[in-house]
């Protein structure tokens, strides 16, 4: 680990960290990225694939692939929303390589796991020459392809709080086709034990966008659909998506509302079922 940090900290040259490489190699091929050195972290023992509870958190080591993560969550009945998000990242071939930490560090606004991690209040554990630190995923991603990682620092794990009970959480996304696709827009809805509703939006801003509401209309089964839709629409209004090759801003905006409604309903169902983390 120290060796990897030192290699990465070497001044005077460009370097890129590689784990699964499913984004990095594409970037290098297309010339979006150039670098002198690629540091492959797969042999760093401290980062090897490992998932398990640790100090009230689910600790997902940096070497954990999407496939391994989804299989673990499925087996343990944990974080269904995160499992769903991990299961739509690329194809199986991609998920067998791509890592959760890499999905965060790539900092694509369309990353599918990021809204879920943000809604769940997850953090990244960072190791570096000057010790380690933890940063909330929401803060860690500074913008499109920009993260709060200094030279010599390596994300060693993703930490997802386990302590919260009676939550319901759901992920949804819009794509151009049903098969493997990048999200046109995606979001996560979390209802916590105090009935606070958190929406985390993806693909609609350079960095994760989060809104919180304790408006009871969102969780009250007796509230009218009309009132709920109005509240959801108001929460979604903070998003200001762009138009690009995948969709227009107008469609993205409208889909946030649709997905928010659907994810809210599904989060409520999961909350009612009980258990941990819907």
């Amino acid at each position: 680990m120290a060796e990897a940090c030192a290699a990465w900290a070497t001044p005077g040259r460009d370097a890129r960290l590689l784990f699964g490489g499913t984004d990095l190699t594409v970037g290098l091929r297309h010339g979006h990225l150039t670098t002198d050195v690629v540091i492959d972290l797969k042999r760093v023992a401290d980062l090897a694939a490992d998932i398990g509870p640790s100090k009230g958190m689910l600790r997902v080591s940096a070497g954990t692939t999407m496939s391994a993560l989804a299989a673990y969550l499925d087996r343990e009945g944990l974080f269904a929303a995160l499992r769903d998000a991990a299961n739509v990242v690329g194809s199986i071939q991609i998920r067998n390589r791509a890592t959760l930490a890499g999905n965060i560090c790539n900092a694509s606004p369309a990353a599918d796991t990021v809204p879920v991690l943000v809604a769940l209040g997850s953090a990244v554990e960072i190791s570096g020459p000057h010790g380690s630190r933890e940063v909330a995923v929401e803060e860690f991603i500074l913008g499109n392809r920009q993260i709060d990682l200094r030279r010599g620092e390596i994300v060693s794990a993703v930490l997802i709080p386990l302590a919260r009970q009676n939550c319901g959480c759901a992920f949804d996304r819009i794509t151009r086709r049903r098969g493997v696709d990048l999200a046109t827009a995606n979001l996560c809805c979390l209802i916590d034990e105090r009935s606070e509703v958190v929406f985390a939006f993806g693909s609609v801003a350079p960095r994760p966008l989060v809104v919180r509401s304790i408006d009871p209309v969102l969780t009250d089964p007796s509230a009218t659909a009309h009132d709920r839709e109005k509240t959801v629409a108001a929460l979604c209004a903070i998003a200001a998506p762009i138009s690009d090759v995948r969709a227009s801003a107008g469609y993205r905006t409208a889909m946030l509302g649709v997905m928010a409604e659907r994810a809210l309903a599904s989060a409520r169902r999961r909350q009612q079922v009980g258990g941990t983390h819907g």
């Binding site: 590689l18 490489g21 499913t22 190699t25 594409v26 091929r29 297309h30 690629v38 492959d40 797969k42 496939s67 690329g90 194809s91 199986i92 071939q93 991609i94 067998n96 390589r97 493997v180």
Partner: peptide, 26 residues
């Protein structure tokens, strides 16, 4: 060559991967 088509699929340690997205050195 961007991991979308799967024509280069091989297995590494029993898991299917896109060989175009893996550096040989990896």
């Amino acid at each position: 060559s961007v991991g979308e088509c799967g024509a280069c699929t091989v297995m590494i340690d029993g898991q299917s991967v896109n060989a175009c997205l893996v550096l040989a050195a990896e």
